[in-house]
Design a binder for these strands. Structure first.
Length: 424
DNA sequence: TCTGGGGTCCTAGGACCC
DNA sequence: TCTGGGGTCCTAGGACCC
């Protein structure tokens, strides 16, 4: 019988911000999304104040000040680096690790003799070496391990580690869990399940399988089986090859000029092409979308998507920019105030295992392109991102630039922003 | 009057995750 | 003034093939 553990960092982004600001211990901390739009992480104290996940920051500004909430823009350079350190520790200590997200990892602990001891040791080491508190849930399936983790987090008496085992114990936890809190049950399915009279995870587990299969597809059925201890999801040790890449942003303010949209789309194309080369892949298709704000019904609404198939798969930034701008021309309509744009690359395949075609450009040209991109990426790595840029992305007036007024220093990944200790 | 059976591929839309 | 960004998978339906 397989045994899964889910290691989950407590209030991860808020914990990261607090790491270099110990005076914030015990104070409410929130982290805002890109563009300082809404709340994406809260410390325990902030949760206790009733600040919901996803709360629009501007609506809560007064409350933040009144309650002395420390507010941060998101600092993904910092969170990503701390995450990598934590995952390294887990990989040292556990036989099988699947990095599931920036703040979670599944472990396969089948065959480990003293589970509790190992989990407590992992928790202790992550706390001492990195400074981030984690909770660990143990169970026979991934979905149950998720639930066990919730118990570990919510009930302090377990000391951050909880094993969900034994039919009675499983039933008690399922009965005490709202169905919408089960991993894999989103708001839509939750509403349909409530309508069917299934309010808890236990009710859901007891529904006829045929109904679940019909109404919630095989994905829902898989969730249901996992709740009854049948493991359907295995540990994915190696991350699967990516199938798409996206760079999208909301703008600092609304944008109606084609020229500004072109600059924004071109710079997103540059960023997504960089990601593509970091993956060692090439893209077959470029997709662009633009949209007016969702939340303002008084403004004229328009959203559009356009897809351009590249002549041959490529990771060459100028070609990707050209395709993205062509796609933008298909989407754009004058007279609208746009709030967001994005560039997506699809049909990714490894650059080294490339299907050659009759339409291929001559191989010399392809090599020159690769050499150019290699030199560009190396220069930007060495001298800082943006050291070498494309002219179209460097216009001085950039209303589409995102707001990020309260970002903490990149303490661990940028020489200029290292924390200082002692007198200046 | 009457119009098959079996398959693949692509896309859009919906649902979910963190 | 002001509501994130980045992914995955499933299904249905249409186009197309023999």
């Amino acid at each position: 019988m397989p045994l899964f553990a889910l290691v989950d960092c407590n209030n991860f982004y808020a914990s990261c911000e607090r790491l270099f600001r110990p005076e914030l211990t015990g104070r409410p901390v929130v982290v805002l999304s890109n563009n300082d739009g809404c709340v994406i992480a809260r410390s325990a104290e902030a949760k206790a104040l009733g600040i919901p996940m996803g709360a629009p920051a501007f609506q809560w500004e007064r409350r933040f000040r009144a309650s002395g909430v420390a507010v941060f823009s998101s600092n993904f350079a910092l969170y990503g680096d701390l995450s990598a350190r934590i995952m390294t520790i887990l990989e040292d200590m556990a036989p099988g690790v699947e990095v599931y997200s920036i703040d979670e990892a599944f472990l396969d602990l089948s065959g480990v003799a003293d589970l509790e001891a190992l989990c407590r040791a992992m928790r202790e080491r992550v706390l001492r070496w990195v400074g981030i508190p984690v909770s660990i849930g143990l169970a026979s399936t991934k979905t149950l391990a998720k639930l066990a983790n919730r118990v570990a987090k919510k009930q302090p008496r377990h000391g951050g580690v909880f094993a969900l085992e034994g039919a009675q114990s499983v039933e008690a936890v399922l009965g005490a869990t709202e169905v919408g809190d089960v991993w894999g049950i989103g708001p839509r399915h939750a509403r349909r399940l409530w309508a069917r009279g299934a309010r808890t995870a236990l009710d859901f587990a007891r529904l006829p399988r045929a109904w679940v299969r019909r109404e919630m597809s095989v994905v829902g059925l898989c969730t249901q089986l996992e709740l009854s201890g049948v493991s359907c999801l295995s540990l994915e040790r190696a991350p699967a090859a990516r199938k798409s890449l996206l760079c999208s942003r909301s703008f600092g303010r609304l944008v109606s000029e084609r020229g500004h949209l072109r600059e924004a789309v071109a710079s997103y194309a540059v960023r997504v092409a960089e990601k593509l080369r970091r993956e060692g892949a090439e893209a077959a298709t470029v997709q662009v979308f633009i949209a007016t704000p969702r939340h303002r019904e008084n403004l004229p609404q328009h959203s559009a998507t356009a897809t351009i198939a590249l002549r041959t798969p490529t990771a060459h930034t100028p070609e990707i920019i050209r395709a993205a701008l062509r796609a933008l021309d298909q989407c754009f309509r004058s007279g609208y105030e746009y709030q967001k744009a994005g560039v997506m690359l699809l049909g990714l395949a490894p650059a080294c295992a490339r299907q050659i075609s009759l339409l291929d450009q001559d191989p010399g040209e392809r090599r020159r392109q690769q050499a150019l991109m290699g030199a560009l990426d190396a220069a930007n790595r060495r001298f800082g991102n943006g050291a070498l840029r494309y002219a179209i992305t460097t216009a001085p007036d950039r209303p589409w630039h995102m707001r990020q007024l309260r970002r903490s220093p990149r303490y661990t990944t940028n020489w200029g922003e290292l924390p200082r200790v002692g007198a200046e």
